[in-house]
Amino acid sequence: AQRLPRLGLLQPPQPRTAAGGAAAPGGQALPPRHSHTAAAYTRQDPFKAVIYDRTGSLSGYALQRALEERGCVPEMSDERRVVLLFAIGSTVENANHLLWALQHILEQEEKTDAARSTSHPLPEADAISHNSTRNSAEITASQHVSTWNNCKLSRPFTDPVSFHLTPPDRSQMESIPLEQCTRRIAGEMIIPYPPGIPLLYQGEIITSQQAEQLVLLRDAGAKCQGPEDPALGTIRVFKNSGKQVSP
């Protein structure tokens, strides 16, 4: 934390002391099991570290790509965080290489920020306000790009989707640009990972909100399972003579 103050380390909440709470290891007391103050978990896998950029400038996807470019392969990432996994075979050299990679990434980010500020210089007081506003906007945008199925739909469920044991005939489907998929019938599942929950099922009518979310996730660098085109430049849909499904 001292060497990389810009990066945050996600940690489980500390157990709270509450009347009637059960004793926890180390002499602390945990809240009653059914108490609304009870944490979902208080321990974390010691071989995993979940890190994030405190400023919000680097999304989890961007940080993972930057680490991979420097020879470090994280386990996974989402719109905000990166999961680093250590194993019994990890060495001090591995840890030092990771620290070097993170330091190099942040140094490059600081140079980029400095170049932006010098190309458009602002008075010191205004610069502070400008940076604060920029970071707030980026954090808000990052939170909007989510891998969770939290679209603001007009209703909290979609029309029933028929499932069959026999896969549909591929000749009934076609690939189209992702930006043109609204009101078309999905020909494949799209599952962002993490969390591994489908955003789209085969046979589901794609809403404008779903299409927008998929474009945002693609542009942010989210990794999805299921689509024939992993880059999500295109999506497979059922043919319907080029017509869209009526609302």
Rank of each mutant, 00 (worst) to 15 (best):
A1E: 10
A1T: 12
A1W: 07
P5D: 15
P5G: 15
R6M: 05
L7N: 05
L7H: 04
G8D: 03
G8A: 03
P13N: 02
Q14K: 15
A18N: 08
G20P: 06
A22M: 08
P25W: 05
G26P: 06
G27Y: 13
L30P: 06
P32T: 03
P32V: 10
S35I: 06
A38Y: 09
A39N: 11
A40N: 09
D45A: 05
K48C: 15
K48L: 14
V50I: 15
I51W: 04
I51D: 07
Y52E: 02
S57H: 14
G60W: 02
L63A: 06
Q64Y: 06
R65N: 12
R65M: 05
L67A: 02
E68I: 14
E69D: 11
G71N: 07
C72D: 13
V73Y: 13
P74W: 14
P74L: 11
S77F: 06
R80D: 06
R81G: 07
R81S: 15
V83D: 05
L84Q: 14
I88M: 05
G89I: 09
G89R: 11
V92S: 10
N94W: 14
N94Y: 13
N94S: 13
A95L: 14
H97V: 07
L99D: 15
W100N: 14
A101D: 02
A101V: 12
A101I: 09
H104Y: 07
I105D: 01
Q108S: 12
T112S: 12
A114F: 10
T118Y: 07
H120S: 12
P123F: 08
E124T: 01
A125K: 15
A125E: 12
R134T: 00
R134N: 01
N135K: 01
S142C: 08
S146P: 04
T147S: 14
T147R: 06
T147V: 13
N149S: 11
N149D: 08
L153C: 10
S154W: 00
P156Y: 07
F157P: 00
T158E: 04
D159M: 09
T166F: 00
T166A: 00
P167C: 03
P168T: 03
D169C: 00
D169R: 00
I176Y: 07
I185V: 15
G187N: 08
E188I: 02
I191K: 05
Y193Q: 08
P194H: 08
G196P: 01
P198M: 00
L200M: 13
L200N: 02
L200H: 08
Y201T: 00
Y201I: 02
E204T: 08
S208L: 02
Q209R: 09
Q209A: 08
A211I: 09
A211C: 15
Q213V: 02
L214S: 11
L216A: 13
L217N: 09
A220R: 06
G221Q: 01
G226P: 14
L232W: 10
T234M: 15
N240V: 01
Q244N: 11
S246K: 10
